[in-house]
Computed example of a mutant assay.
Amino acid sequence: MESGLEMKFAGGRPVMREGAVIEGYASRFGMPDQGGDIVGAGAFGASLARLASRGDKVRMLWQHDPAKPIGVWDEIREDATGLFVRGRLLEGVTLAQEAATLIGAGAIDGLSIGYRTIRAEKDGKGRRVLREVELWEVSLVTFPMLPEAKLGRKGETPEDFAAALIAATEALRG
């Protein structure tokens, strides 16, 4: 007796092209995070310059876990908005493939910075304003300390952001 239930099996893991690109703002200047800290404009400049002079890079990690690198940041720069990052999830890293699937489904979109404070001061409301930090890593995270730190360029319309996510998903399925 036939139950009407159909099953299809494609086999294998989801396919991700080498160099699946992600981008967004890992930090936004002038916005208090959930701990009350604010990153001031220019806070990353000296650290980025030191890294470049040594030929070193900021690491791309999964959930701030140093044992779980998932890709490389090809571009990290400060602009008027904050710390912009663009990088690639690496095909040969199983966790990167999982991250790509989660990003494509919209389950993960947070970015978060790992750093050491070099110089900070209190503002008029008693909040810590980070004036200089040593940037170690930028992670893909489920819950960023700064909710506005997300994949996708800030300032685009929600429709543009949705279109970018759809395009990224199609590229990952590629």
Rank of each mutant, 00 (worst) to 15 (best):
G12E: 13
Y115F: 15
G155Q: 05
E98C: 04
R127Q: 12
G114K: 04
L83G: 08
G12Q: 13
E137P: 04
G30T: 13
G45V: 12
S27Q: 04
G104Q: 04
Q63H: 13
P158W: 07
A162Q: 04
M145C: 10
Y25E: 01
L151E: 04
D79R: 01
F143K: 07
L172Q: 03
L90T: 15
T142F: 14
A67D: 11
L151V: 11
R119C: 13
R50P: 15
A171Y: 01
R153A: 11
R116S: 13
G71V: 12
K125Q: 14
R116E: 14
R17S: 06
P144W: 10
A99T: 07
I118P: 12
G126N: 05
E75L: 14
G40M: 01
L48D: 15
E156A: 05
A100E: 02
P69M: 07
G45H: 09
H64P: 09
Y115H: 13
E137T: 06
L172R: 06
L140Q: 00
E137Y: 09
I113T: 08
L140H: 00
T157W: 06
T142Q: 10
A168F: 14
I38G: 02
E170C: 05
A105F: 11
G106I: 12
T81Q: 07
R173W: 08
V138R: 03
E75G: 00
E121N: 07
S139L: 02
T81N: 02
G87H: 02
K57G: 02
G114V: 09
V15A: 12
G45T: 15
L90P: 07
A52M: 04
V138G: 00
K8N: 14
E78Q: 06
A96S: 06
R131Q: 12
G35W: 09
M145K: 13
A163F: 08
V133T: 06
A96F: 01
E156I: 00
G55T: 08
I70V: 15
G11H: 10
D37H: 05
L130G: 04
A46K: 15
E18T: 11
V15W: 08
K122G: 10
A10F: 14
F84A: 03
F29N: 00
A149N: 02
D33Y: 06
L61G: 01
T169L: 10
F44Y: 14
G110R: 01
R88M: 03
D65N: 13
T81A: 06
G92C: 13
I76E: 03
S139T: 03
R131A: 03
